[in-house]
Nucleic acid binder design. Structure first.
Lengths: 125, 125
DNA sequence: CAAATACATCAACGTTTCTTGATGAGGAGA
DNA sequence: TCTCCTCATCAAGAAACGTTGATGTATTTG
């Protein structure tokens, strides 16, 4: 039911209210070049850490840090096999991010309805 | 020509290479709750700072800071009129962000081709 | 002109994020 | 078992980020 766009206890409907906290967290995870490079590599399929390490020329602990961030954001998952960790994309989460951006890019109804927001002041008339 | 997905001097084609630096910058701008709230308000149309200030209950200088970040990311523009600044969305930039997320969510060709990346080591066979 | 309004900018500070190098845990092979 | 390999985690420091309160600037109003 929860789709990353509205909190579990959201108001009835309205014009697609965004889960700001969740969105901020997700975009935060996407806001680093190294992490984006990882995601881009994973587009092509599962990769073990050592492959990412070589391809991105990143120190092991640095990469591990970023993989953890991505994992905690739900953007990737890992599968352990022997002594290797294989990381892969979680397409659903990227889908949620996609919807979030679209939601922002989509205008609401028509012009705004001025629902009694401004109380004092004489701004913008 | 430059669409935010490939650097100006990008390689011929390939499977939609992402501009990592630009993408990271853009997502960074989107990674704050207050800024997302601003963008969400602007979905509804142009707003002056004082309106945003009231609606978001944010200190003036705080809001000003975030508006600047959004503006530098190209997500909003401002229009001065008398002593008011009216901010509005730049839909194109949100469109670019949208494409970036889609690019990440889209698999490349088929399985990976193993183009001689790993030289030493015995990982993942 | 003086006062008030709308907003930007700045410096200082606390917080978060990122990097680095060291240590540790578990698996695989000699 | 001893050693090597892959990877995670930790602590310390550096850098980036966000908040606050003060000050500055332009504009309008009295």
């Amino acid at each position: 039911m929860y789709n990353g766009l509205m909190p579990p206890n959201a108001a009835p409907a309205g014009p697609a209210k965004l889960d700001l906290v969740g969105a901020a967290r997700l975009f935060q995870a996407l806001s680093d070049e190294t992490r984006l490079a990882v995601l881009e590599m994973l587009r092509d399929g599962e990769r073990c850490v050592c492959e990412l390490q070589d391809a991105l020329d990143a120190a092991q602990s640095r990469l591990s840090f970023h993989l953890r961030v991505l994992k905690e954001a739900g953007l990737v998952r890992d599968r352990k096999e022997g002594r290797w960790s294989h990381y892969s994309l979680v397409p659903d989460t990227l889908g949620v991010a996609h919807d979030m951006v679209r939601a922002l890019a989509t205008e609401t109804s028509g012009r705004r309805g001025r629902k009694g927001l401004r109380v004092l002041g004489d701004c913008c008339d």
